[in-house]
Design a protein around this nucleic acid. Sequence first.
DNA 1: CAAGTACTTCGGCCAAGACCGTAGTAGTTC
DNA 2: GAACTACTACGGTCTTGGCCGAAGTACTTG
Lengths: 258, 258
Amino acid sequence: MDTGPKIAQVAALVGDPARANMLSALMDGRTLTASELAYVSGVAPQTASGHLAKLSDAGLLTLEKHGRRRYFRLASPLVARMLEGLMVVAQEGPARQRNLWRGGETLRHARTCYDHMAGRIAVAIAERLVQQSFILLDEDGGQLTDTGRSFFDEFGVDLRLASKRRVFCRPCLDWSERRPHLAGAVGAAILHHALEHDWVEHIRDSRALVVTPVGVRGLATTFGIEGAPPTDGREGQVASLPCGRISDEIRFRNSVGR
Amino acid sequence: MDTGPKIAQVAALVGDPARANMLSALMDGRTLTASELAYVSGVAPQTASGHLAKLSDAGLLTLEKHGRRRYFRLASPLVARMLEGLMVVAQEGPARQRNLWRGGETLRHARTCYDHMAGRIAVAIAERLVQQSFILLDEDGGQLTDTGRSFFDEFGVDLRLASKRRVFCRPCLDWSERRPHLAGAVGAAILHHALEHDWVEHIRDSRALVVTPVGVRGLATTFGIEGAPPTDGREGQVASLPCGRISDEIRFRNSVGR
DNA sequence: CAAGTACTTCGGCCAAGACCGTAGTAGTTC
DNA sequence: GAACTACTACGGTCTTGGCCGAAGTACTTG
């Protein structure tokens, strides 16, 4: 057997719009029920059920039963990484309309990526640090300068603890912004500091972060960047849907939307 | 517009076996003609032509015309990275038969990955260095030990040149072996040394590497690993196909294979 | 145990698209 | 210009698979 068919199998799974929507919705690491996933993907529950069975069988999703509900989540970070790879290419595309991603505004603004921050805020921080010559970045490496080191000292981040046994500073391509943010020990330290000082908070059990009022001030004074998210607020709809009440709406969407 | 549909579009493109085969064949960075790609994907030239048009339109491939031939290659490293992401997930799969990848044996054995080595050999080297405590590796970072430093000194690799402005030592997940090999300055230095001392040679304009007899000896004495590839030798068929002569074979395959 | 909710299975409909045969265009060789 | 090669366009066939309605299973609540 060749390798082509196997990747085709996985890709075909992601290649259906309904399934792609489900996977996108799960990309932040949340767990969602079958109904919720049916809703976000815009298909009837029966159809969603079939899709979810396929995704689980293929090992892209894992399933947890609690009572009469079935909770799905991505089976591993590798799946998330694969999806991010697809997103990068999809957004690149054949130079045409660059339509911004909707429906994931919070995630796009700030989120965690493994142990560091990603999203608009994280990219802005990275760019600021480079601009101030606190950090040197190139294609696949990064380095702290001496002025950078003292900046972090003043900032209250102790980087000495971190420097053992792991990459110190490394750029990581941000899929939503398509510019690098900071990973490695430095990236982790910044996230740690931000959480510690209540600049940001995790949303539920998701990877998304909200910037607190304290954080807005902190980001402005420390990095000179605008930390407030664009006032949109259409996030979290899915998660907060009253489960028993959405069926009419689904029926409506199904009869009209397609 | 949501993000789902866009990644679905790209994924659907990869989701067809014929196209997936084409992309796999191009993964090592080679350029192949439409006919060659038709052959590897197992479809008639007309069909391949259609597939290639779609892949090019979507920006996954770039096209270069030379005379009456059309040479295709992956449009960017991002596409290769996406495919590697898919491969990792595809090989993982739902715990079942782990059928080894055929038809890319050379590539699986040794290849370059950006500026360092990947494949069986590279993974073996990395494991050896870790086992000897020359290098410490964890999830996302690596570090040279003092004994490691003197090992590389003796080995004849000067790492001092490299340590500016880039990541020094970093594990990188090998898609064919699914275990890490070495990236960063150390990985690059090893590849450089191997090429410099004729341990390995590039195959044509591809990413694949062959280990020379010198290399087999060198790898054995320096790292204590077996450098010779498994005797299989079904590689390079595509590239060496006599172009005008394959049509019968294609016709045969098409009439039987499906 | 009856009613309600979450989810799955089955069956039939339908559209998308992969495929190739035929025929055509463009470039090369003699 | 004739013969040949590399590739593309068109048209028709046929399979795949997404979709939903209806019906059925599993769990919870009162």
